[in-house]
């Protein structure tokens, strides 16, 4: 019964939030880019994971929008954003976003992301450290830790149950089946295939950037590393590896949480990041 209520509760909040974000399409160096935004205050750019969660104004966005001007773009190739042919690797993603910041007139921003998005945020911060006021990275790949292999998303992608086990602390919880639906509609399946295709282009050959670790020392701003303590796809050792290379970075584990803290530990996720960026 509790599960049902929780599901209904979250579902209802998602529903109520539908009108919450303002969605627009902006042309960034020839790539049409969908951006969802809301709230007022200092600019806060959220870079999404391979789930493509920025296609909807989820409750965690509303949480951030209480304090910040949230800007959540959809990556090239995901959902209705174009430009897949123009991104060959993670560096192209970083360049895409610095051009977006320029186009939107964003001088200095709070920047962060989950998983793929966190990695892109790191790639931006090492190249243009002066543009980032605060950096947060959650459950992100990008570096390599010997002896701690990453989970294989591509092996399990057709098996929903195993996928939930890989991504969630509680694979049987309501949230796991809300995010990984048993019967997704055709549009969702198409978006998921597109998303996995972009991800494959970024990580297939090598699921990290061999140059990133030796560039991380360039990051000049306060940095928060936030990880689900049960992340099986990108284990917390990856957060520790980031910490090793980023001066003064703070590593924080979220208890009983998997790879997707914005869903599985929404309030802790929002509070930790909001407090860090406001401090």
């Amino acid at each position: 019964m509790f599960n049902f209520l929780q599901k209904l509760y979250y579902g209802a909040r998602v529903y109520l939030n539908k009108g919450g974000g303002q969605s627009e399409t902006v042309e960034i160096a020839g790539k049409s880019t969908v951006i969802i935004s809301g709230g007022e205050g200092e600019p806060f750019v959220y870079l999404h994971s391979a789930l493509g969660e920025s296609m909807m104004w989820f409750p965690f966005f509303a949480g951030f929008a209480n304090k910040f001007r949230v800007i959540a773009p959809t990556h090239p190739g995901f959902g209705k954003s174009g430009g897949f042919d123009d991104v060959a690797d993670i560096e192209d993603m970083a360049f895409h976003y610095i051009e977006m910041f320029d186009a939107l007139g964003l001088e200095q921003i709070h920047l962060g992301g989950v998983s793929l998005g966190g990695w892109i945020a790191a790639e931006i911060a090492v190249r243009w450290p002066e543009r980032v006021k605060k950096l947060w990275i959650a459950d992100a790949p990008g570096v390599w830790v010997d002896g701690t292999p990453l989970g294989d998303l591509f092996r399990l992608m057709q098996n929903r149950e195993k996928l939930r086990e890989l991504l969630f602390f509680d694979p049987h919880g309501a949230m796991a089946s809300l995010v990984i639906k048993d019967q997704p509609d055709e549009q969702m399946m198409l978006y998921a295939y597109q998303a996995m295709t972009v991800l494959a282009r970024m990580v297939w050959q090598r699921p990290y950037d061999p140059k990133l670790a030796r560039r991380l020392h360039r990051i000049a701003c306060p940095t928060l590393l936030l990880w689900g303590d049960h992340d099986k796809l990108v284990p917390p050792a990856y957060g520790e590896e980031y910490k090793k290379h980023i001066r003064g970075a703070e590593m924080r584990l979220i208890k009983d949480c998997g790879h997707l803290p914005m869903f599985e530990a929404e309030s802790e996720f929002v509070e930790a990041i909001s407090a860090f960026c406001s401090a």
């Binding site: 399946m189 198409l190 996995m196 295709t197 991800l199 282009r201």
Partner: peptide, 14 residues
């Protein structure tokens, strides 16, 4: 039959 994403277009995959 295991095919990696992007190996075919989304239409062909379907």
């Amino acid at each position: 039959g295991l095919t990696p994403p992007g190996y075919t277009s989304a239409k062909s995959a379907a």
